[in-house]
Design a protein around this nucleic acid. Sequence first.
DNA 1: AAAACGGGGCA
DNA 2: TGCCCAGTTTT
Length: 370
Amino acid sequence: MTFSDHVLVWHKKNARRDLPWQQAVTPYRVWVSEVMLQQTQVATVTDYFERFMARFPTVRRLAAAELDEVLALWSGLGYYARARNLHKAAGIIHARYDDRFPDTFDAVHSLPGIGRSTAGAILALAFGQRHAILDGNVKRVLTRHHAIAGWPGETAVSNRLWAIAEAHTPHRRIAQYTQAMMDLGATVCTRTRPACPHCPLRESCLAHANGEQERFPTKRPKKTLPVRVTIFVMVMHQDKHGRFLLLEKRPATGIWGGLWSFPECAPEADLDAWCVERFGSAPNSVAHLPPFRHTFTHFHLDIRPVLVAWGETQRQEFPYIMISARETIWYPLDGETSMKGGAVSELPLLGLAAPVERLLGELSRMERRV
DNA sequence: AAAACGGGGCA
DNA sequence: TGCCCAGTTTT
């Protein structure tokens, strides 16, 4: 029995067939699920996937949607460039391929947000074409099976793994094999405490033979992350309609690109002076909320939230000067959208970065307790 | 606090 | 081609 034979036999008995994107398989559904799965676990993705498909059932509908709406549905999934790429690619498929998902590797691979592995997965799963994949799960299986040392982020290691992945890829039952490899990495050949007794490849696995499963894959070299500090200025406005927090839309690229967030003040700046410049006067009340750390791959972001208010006002419109190059909105704190984490689980109407959503949720819960 | 995850984009 | 960038969850 070959490598792929063992994997396929295992798949027959152990495959998951109940996942949403495994029903009514279309290239579009496979594409969206693969992009979501790039960064998130199956359990989280299923909810997002269902909501996404309900709103954008076809490529055409996605292409016709506003990016804002796509980002809103992506809110909390992270790596928002993927949502932007998904939307952009849908536009390309609409314009160039008449809404039909392309079925050649080069065409699929050249779409924004689709790299070599994702292209291979889509073509294998949706079209039954023979292509190798090399996602995190497969990397783990292969580095262990062949005891490949070295961080897979290194080009030399990656090239080796791709060659091995290609060599193992069978010529038949490609969709099953592709799914099986991902499932195997996700459920058996796990990062910690792999379930080797249940693994179809244990007899040929070099790492298993040496009891070195946890040595592979080699970890990314450590780097001490720089720390950046920012002040989230949470401008609160209260009137007879309730409480509102000022959000502004971030630039399309960079951190939390295109998402809505709080205005940010440099930590060394004087808050009152900043407010005067930005809003025309210093706030009447300033409350420092507990700071917290949000960690990205390349740096820590220490967030110091400050709640500022100018007191009650009768006016519907916020009366202060808002000097901003950005679009701003008043987020209703006491509306249904602020009930996340509570009994009502509404869709976020806006794309919000995780720390922003967290702060909004905390404030709305504080409000409801009072 | 560390680790994991796939791809884009730019020198 | 080699580097840096980007968010969140899990461990």
